[in-house]
Design a protein around this nucleic acid. Structure first.
Lengths: 124, 124
DNA sequence: ATCCCACCTGGAGCACACTCCAGGTCAAGC
DNA sequence: GCTTGACCTGGAGTGTGCTCCAGGTGGGAT
């Protein structure tokens, strides 16, 4: 293989990103990914940039951003550099939600731990 | 109102727990709540204990426990005190998942924040 | 040549957790 | 006595995010 621009097969992208092949196709279909390049046989060949974008998607998904909002973000990215302030605003709003989410998680987790400790005190 | 055992109307439980009336009925239907007591007209009257249990449900739900597992937990509670060790095991396993979830959230949030900072550096 | 495997498409199906609806009951206030 | 509003039931519908399927292509190893 010529080491030109580095290119990934679907299988390699599944490996790298943890998204299933079906999910990758789904993301392309709904426009979360730009149309992925193809080889002569019509098979997808992902660029480094595609894989990087999928890393971003992974962060946003894992922090609970709905797909609809990721689509809005993708749209901003597509529109070019003059949307950077909007992207900051979108990500900051998301970041605040993540913060709240972590706080709530921690609070409820503490309650679960109290319950565990109560049960331990009963059982000992 | 006689201040006997304290009793809650559906509306009051919605208020207290943040679950919708439909969700409360749904939880009763699937057996996550024991059958709720009724007044003469067939309307639900929740006890303090029901509301307390709903608080537990709220913690488990908010920390991402699937309903199927909450059902298993409810089952253990129903079966009585000899299941306390099993309950501890179930909650500890859940607690570990919550811990992992928070860690992942924090990690991905940091990446989002890096992105924000990068965008800020571009825009400034 | 043949087999296998990774990949392709369009479209249907699924799991989860609710949420809504039609049609009805009852009690309280005007 | 009528309206309003909170509540009831069984059952259907919804949104989200995938996931699976049938039927087919093309390339590399044996």
């Amino acid at each position: 293989m010529l080491p030109g621009v580095s290119v990934y097969t679907p299988g390699q992208v599944v490996e790298e990103t943890g998204f299933s092949l079906d999910t990758l196709r789904y993301y392309e279909r709904i426009g979360l990914l730009e149309p992925i390049g193809r080889n002569a046989a019509g098979q997808r060949r992902f660029t480094q940039e595609d894989v990087g974008w999928l890393g971003t998607i992974r962060c946003l998904r894992d922090t609970g951003m709905p797909i609809a909002e990721m689509l809005r973000f993708a749209e901003l990215v597509r529109k070019g550099d003059h949307t950077i302030r909007d992207r900051i605003a979108l990500l900051e709003a998301h970041d605040r939600r993540v913060e709240a989410q972590v706080d709530n998680l921690r609070e409820k987790q503490a309650a679960v731990q109290n319950k565990i400790n109560y049960y331990r005190s009963v059982v000992d």
